[in-house]
Structures are given as structure tokens and as C-alpha cells.
Design a protein around this nucleic acid. Structure first.
Lengths: 206, 206
DNA sequence: CTTTAAAATGAACAATGTTCAAGAAGAATC
DNA sequence: GATTCTTCTTGAACATTGTTCATTTTAAAG
């Protein structure tokens, strides 16, 4: 069996267009929000017909979900680059990186967390799994810091920490709700972790 | 000036209809989610024309925003009933009440937090204010527990706590993301508060 | 009862997601 | 390279849903 895949001219064009459509959709979501994403706008900007968008992604949700998939992938890459030497620093680093990524890509993250499917179709499993994988990045440092805790406890704790930090950041960046200045938000996240890790016995009391 | 307002037959019908429309819209959002709310469905169920809905609420966002307004009002009432004798108990009570309310009205809360306006019209100020007022209910117990902290610190802390608990609950109830069983979610919230209040020096170390 | 002001109506319009028959374009075969 | 075959692309037509407004209806005022 030949490993070198012959890519036909047809496939080349198809792939190029697919990437182009995604890039445009992502750009619209990022700058104007998910609600401003329209099939015709995407098709026109990509220089193809609306039919091609449907041909490539099945329906419009398909475009959105693919963008969301790439968003969580990009997030995971960024979180994975946080240094792992010191587990405490790693936890702070994960939170700060999440804040930075969220601040830079607020509308993309909202698309990931807030988009509802048409009717009651289920959200794709692979995206759920990727989100889980992203916040499972907290497991290793937590295991090192709490060697006596069992896996279930660690999993629960990482879920709690992730959700709490997510709440602080997503509401903090929601200009309409609370409008915390970004620099203050960073401080808010840090202070949150200070108190919580102290309460967990991970940080020494001052 | 006469305090007894003569309510004309016209006004009676108008008010009755207004309430009817809202009840139906709320019911649809609560059971099938915001995305399933359609003008024609509401009008038909309310026994009036679509024009009347527009006449009463300006546009469709107007209906949604009015439902959201009533949701945060109902939440505030519920939170305001939490006993205030013991400030620590009060904080736990507020979190548990929020969880209970969120679990019972998940789609209504999501409508409140996730609905985006058309274009870039601003979210109504009074709703923002009501949300702020709701989580300002944490101020009094926090002031009692941290008498040395200044107002700014208290305000920041209450915002942090509210956002963190909101994150834990909203992601925890998001079946598609994490799917925490409700009973376990309650425990998760309690343990979160345990650790955090301990870290803040509010609870004594065990 | 007549007149008048306000409100309700729903057909028509506008915006947007979706489909599909017809045509175009690349691949396969000779 | 011409012909056939397969696949993809197209965009007009359709479906759904938010929005408007001329007309009709209805309650109030005279």
C-alpha cells in the first residue's frame, strides 16, 4: 500500500476551499459574533456558491462546529505549552493562559460554549471529549500536589477549578454584565487561585 | 389627582394579553430552549396575530428581554429569602438556592446569560443592574465576615464568588459538556465553598 | 348613534437557512 | 485527445421565520 497519497486536482481545490470557508467563518464569528454569521456572506467572501458550503459541511451548524472544534484544539495547544516543572506555577499558568486566550478570542469561545444545536440534535462527542481533555491538563499538577487524593477526587476538583475559573473569566469579559478591566481580571483570577489553593492546603498559610 | 386608576376595557385586554404572551414565551423557552422560540408559535398559542406581539413588545428581542427581566427578578426574590442570621450559612444558602433555581430553570437562565442582541444594540441597562443587585446580596454577609475589608475588596470578592459558582453550576448542568449528576453538583458547590472560605480565613482550619 | 382615536389583523415583504435539477469540471477509458 | 463517466458546483427556487403596514375592527368620546 502506498503511503504517498496522490492528491488529485479536485481534492486540492476542495481542500483549499474548505480551509478558505473556515477561515472566513472564523473571522466573522471572531469579529462580529456568531449571530452575525450568514451563509451567503461566507459563500460570497469565499468566492463560491451557498451550495458548496452545504456540500462541504452538510449544514450551517457543520461550519460552526468545525470552527468550534478548531478553537478548542488551539486552546489545548496553548494550554499544553504551559511549563510543568512546578505544579503550583503550572496551575497559575493554566489559568492565566486561559484568560489570555479567552480575552483574545472571546467570540470564538462563546461560540464554543453557547452555541445550541437545531432541535435536539446532540452536540458532537468529539468536541465534548476535546473540552474534557483540555481541562484534564490540570490533573497531573493536582496529582503531584495532592498525592493522597484518589482519581475521582482529582477529576472532580479539576472540573470544579476549571468551571470556576471559566465562570470568572467569561462573566468578567462579558462587557454587558460586569465589565472588569482586563488587568484587574488577571488579578482577580490570581487572587481566586491564591485563596482556593490555600483552602485546599496546597499553598502554605501566610 | 385621583389615585384610583380607571382601567379601561381596552387596557384590561391589553394587559391580559401581554401577560399571556409572556407566559407562553417563557414556557417555550423553559421547555424547548430559546432557539425554539418563534413569533408565530407565540402568537398562535396566545390567540392573537403576530402584529399584536410586535405592537406590544416592539420586536422579538423585546419579548425575550422581558422574559429575562422576570427571570432575574424571580431569582432575586428567591435569593432574598435566604436566612441572614448566620453569615456563613447565608453564603452557603445563596449558593444552594442559586443551584436549585438554575436546575429548575436552566433554559431561562441560559436565555438571560447567553442571549445576544441583534447587530450591536446594547443590552438593556436595567437588566444588567438587576443582575448586579442579585449578586450584591452577598455583600452583607461578606462585610460581617471580613469587617476589615474595604468596599472595593468586598465588591470584587462577591463578584468573584458569584462568577465562580455560576461557572460551576452552569457548566455542571450543561449535559453536553460535563454532565454532573445534580446531587453531586450540590456536593461540588459545597466543597468549593468549603475550600474557598477556608482559604479566605473565614472558616477555621480543620 | 355618530364620530374619532386607538388597536388588532394578517397578507405581504425581507432576511436567511436549505434543497436539488441542471450544468460544469475533472478523471477514466479507449 | 476524444469520449464517456463520475463527481462537484451552481444558483434559482423553496422553506422558515422576523418585520412591516394598509385595512379593518373595536372601544371610547361626543
Amino acid at each position: 500500500m502506498n503511503n504517498v497519497q496522490e492528491e488529485s486536482l479536485r481534492d486540492q481545490k476542495k481542500n483549499r476551499r474548505r480551509l478558505h470557508i473556515l477561515e472566513i467563518a472564523r473571522s466573522i464569528i471572531a469579529t462580529k459574533g456568531l449571530r452575525s454569521l450568514k451563509v451567503r456572506d461566507v459563500a460570497e467572501a469565499a468566492g463560491c456558491s451557498v451550495g458548496s458550503v452545504y456540500n462541504e459541511f452538510g449544514d450551517f451548524d457543520g461550519v460552526i462546529l468545525t470552527v468550534n472544534r478548531e478553537t478548542v484544539q488551539a486552546l489545548t495547544v496553548r494550554l499544553g505549552r504551559v511549563p510543568a516543572e512546578d505544579p503550583v506555577r503550572q496551575l497559575y499558568g493554566l489559568a492565566e493562559t486561559y484568560l489570555e486566550f479567552f480575552a483574545d478570542n472571546a467570540n470564538l469561545l462563546r461560540s464554543l460554549f453557547e452555541h445550541r444545536m437545531e432541535d435536539d440534535r446532540p452536540y458532537p462527542d468529539d468536541i465534548l471529549q476535546m473540552v474534557m481533555d483540555a481541562f484534564a491538563l490540570m490533573h497531573p499538577p493536582l496529582v503531584r500536589l495532592l498525592p493522597d487524593a484518589d482519581d475521582v477526587k482529582i477529576a472532580l476538583l479539576s472540573r470544579t477549578l476549571f468551571s470556576a475559573v471559566h465562570g470568572i473569566i467569561s462573566l468578567g469579559l462579558e462587557e454587558r454584565m460586569v465589565a472588569v478591566p482586563p488587568q484587574m481580571l488577571r488579578q482577580q483570577v490570581t487572587q481566586f487561585l491564591d485563596a482556593h489553593l490555600l483552602g485546599l492546603g496546597i499553598l502554605p498559610a501566610r
